[in-house]
Computed example of a mutant assay.
Amino acid sequence: MSQTSLNLVAISIFLMTLSVLVGPFFNLSPAVPALATFTILGIATLDSFSLQGKGGTIFLDWIAGFSKEHRDRIVHHEAGHFLVAYLLGIPVTGYTLSAWEAWKQGQSGQGGVSFDDGELASQLELGKISAQMLDRYCTVWMAGIAAETLVFNNAEGGTDDKSKLIGVLTMLGFSESVYQQKMRFHALQAKTLLQENWSNYETLVSAMRQRTSVEDCHAELGVGSGKQEVISS
């Protein structure tokens, strides 16, 4: 069973336990929590066997979406990816800010920024990649965490970003001792790029909140953001 499905099971157990404790005080019929628990467990079962975790992810993301801070974190996180990719010359092809939006576009996970990474994939198929390209993508992957940290003083997202970075480094034969070093180095590079282009970052956050198209986001950024070079670690 996927972690998302396990989370749904945990929620159902919590609801049932809570109903037993507080139900008598509110004259709550036992049928109400039982029905809610049955529904959630049904979603978890369907999700595990038919939807490969997507249904549960959408449900949990929908619940989290009631929190303004959660929504703010997502848009600031994804704007970090978007702007740093733009600055480093990696084409952005789209973005989503929720699991539902991602599902409608045929993507997995809770949303994110999509890139034209055909050249990266081609190089990885050959088992090698130029140092410059590796540095650029590692910096983009760490940019969401860097953006969250700058705005909120910590980062709650970024697990998938770290997994991508570690996956590529593993394919290229890097040792585990290098992973944390690369993460810190490229997070610092992303942080520097964001700080140097902060007004553009804030503009992009506002545009993405309104679900502005990628093309119009580029237009909002304008020509003032010069493409940057990344220094190899």
Rank of each mutant, 00 (worst) to 15 (best):
I231T: 09
T159A: 15
W100K: 12
E220C: 09
A31S: 11
D135V: 01
L188A: 14
T45G: 03
Q3T: 04
H76C: 15
G127S: 14
Q181Y: 04
F25I: 05
G65Y: 14
S122V: 08
V75P: 14
T96A: 04
K128H: 15
N153P: 00
L88P: 12
T170P: 01
W103G: 02
M142Q: 12
Y95W: 01
S163T: 09
Y201K: 11
T4G: 15
N153S: 10
A187Q: 15
G127D: 13
S19G: 11
L18V: 11
R184W: 00
F49Q: 04
M208V: 04
L188R: 12
S67Q: 07
A143D: 12
K182W: 02
S199L: 13
K227Q: 07
L6V: 11
E202L: 14
I58C: 06
S108D: 08
S233E: 00
S232I: 03
P33M: 08
F66M: 00
R73Y: 07
N200Q: 07
A64S: 08
I63F: 07
R209Q: 15
D117G: 10
E215W: 00
S48V: 04
G42M: 09
T17L: 15
S199W: 09
A187V: 01
L6R: 10
L126R: 15
E125N: 08
I74A: 15
Y137C: 04
E215I: 00
R136T: 12
S2Q: 13
T37Y: 02
D47S: 11
W103D: 08
Y201H: 14
W198P: 04
A64V: 01
V113T: 00
L221H: 06
A102F: 03
Q3A: 07
H76M: 14
L134E: 06
E125V: 09
M183R: 07
A44S: 14
E148F: 11
G42D: 07
S67E: 08
P33L: 09
A147P: 12
R71N: 11
G144P: 13
I90M: 10
L165H: 06
T149H: 06
H77K: 15
S2R: 13
F115S: 02
D161Q: 09
N197C: 10
E176V: 03
M133W: 09
L15Y: 01
E119R: 12
E176H: 07
N154H: 06
Q210W: 08
V92M: 01
G56H: 09
L15S: 02
S12E: 06
L150H: 01
I58T: 01
L83M: 04
V223F: 02
V223H: 02
Q228L: 08
Q3H: 08
G157E: 04
A219G: 02
A102W: 05
G127L: 13
G53L: 13
I166W: 05
A99V: 02
A155E: 05
S29V: 02
L87P: 12
E229D: 09
L172R: 06
G226Q: 07
Q123C: 13
V84K: 09
Q189H: 10
A190G: 14
Y95M: 01
L97H: 08
S177L: 03
Q105D: 11
N27G: 05
L28W: 01
M133Y: 10
L18M: 14
S122E: 13
Q107Y: 10
F49C: 03
D47C: 10
G118D: 07
G157H: 11
E202Y: 10
K54R: 13
L21V: 13
Q3M: 07
L60H: 03
L194I: 12
K164L: 13
F26T: 07
L204F: 03
A131I: 01
